[in-house]
Design a protein around this nucleic acid. Structure first.
Lengths: 192, 192
DNA sequence: AGTGTATCGTTCGGGATCAAACCACATGGG
DNA sequence: CCCATGTGGTTTGATCCCGAACGATACACT
């Protein structure tokens, strides 16, 4: 059972290493399980239905968003899919190479790019989505409908908390200090 | 609010596109929220406490595992951290370059590699973990202890379902067919 | 018409990610 | 002793991922 030598034992060990400082263990356990569940679900979906179509999780999500909402501006797709716009550029590149989506300019605003499914992309989603949904049902198989709703509601509270107060919180933690650049990422062009 | 133009509206649209085929929507909503919450939490943690130490989420998790469990074999660390052994090799490489962990051979079995924290890695975790835990508490701030436990328990059921029946399920879905190779990944060396 | 300033998607750099291929070491049987 | 089989960690190739830098376009104001 990966990652569960015992979460409780881990807490005891951490508590010892900190000289007895208090730990919010219910919160810690929830975060740990959110991440574990997300990994497990993604892995299962990728290795069952997605793999056969040569799609990654992210590729599927992007496809799904465009399928559901129809022709969309890339910024909206990135937002819905929960990835950065830079990542979306790359994902769309591979999706386009597979002939599943098409990129097109906006008639009125030259900055925008619109995404739409190709014929074959639409057919793929019609076949794929029901099978995807069946696996969602499988991973949730030990929980009843009501319990699913309850867990989903709890998770939504977490998402809302971060979305509504996360930035403010991060600012407060920095307390005036500069935001600490990432190690990776593009460097400013050398002055000449 | 990223990814929530409205999940319910999305379901209706999907239902239409499928010509009225039934959708397991509670399960679908739970999976969507698991992934959203995981992304939100990861993003918040990386951009608050982790960024200042130049650590990725995964880098932190690996460090945490070795900190808690002490000198460990890499296969166990990969399992606990929930990443593949190939990924671990890369993550440890960067962690080692930052002077936070050290790799060492096993005295009795020449195949094994042991990981341990350096002095500075240990100091980092002693400072970092309490601040990490404080942010875990922040993201869970809208939920009480009991609700956190309940959500964690539900998620554990999902993880267990995949771990105990996932492989069997994937085999059943393939139904004898070959497992469909990934598009990416190493190719067999050309026969000569 | 010109000049900010804002916003869009793309590029870029460092890194994470997986599965399969691969190589080194271990272990058991002939 | 040797060779088959198994089990470790590492390498490889394609992709994903982020955020900052960037170039192009849009829009408001002059």
């Amino acid at each position: 059972m990966p990652g569960q030598r015992s979460i409780t034992e881990a807490e005891k060990l951490a508590w010892d290493k900190l000289g007895g400082a208090p730990i919010q263990h219910d919160q810690m356990a929830m975060v740990a399980n959110i991440y574990r569940a997300a990994s497990a679900v993604r892995q299962h979906l990728e290795n069952s239905v997605l793999r056969g179509c040569d799609l990654s999780w992210t590729g599927f999500v992007v496809l799904w968003v465009v399928w559901i909402w129809g022709e969309s501006e890339t910024r909206h797709v990135a937002e819905e899919a929960g990835i950065s716009k830079g990542t979306l550029t790359g994902v769309v590149r591979t999706l386009e190479a597979r002939g599943l989506v098409r990129r097109g300019g906006h008639p009125d605003d030259g900055r925008l790019v619109l995404l739409r499914l190709t014929e074959s992309g639409t057919e793929l989603m019609q076949d794929l989505f029901p099978r995807f949904n069946a696996e969602e049902a499988f991973v949730a198989g030990r929980l009843g409908d009501t319990e699913c709703r309850r867990v989903a509601a709890g998770l939504r509270q977490v998402v809302l908390q971060v979305e509504e107060h996360g930035e403010e919180r991060r600012r407060a933690l920095l307390d005036g200090a500069e935001p600490a650049p990432r190690r990776s990422g593009r460097r400013p062009r050398a002055e000449g």
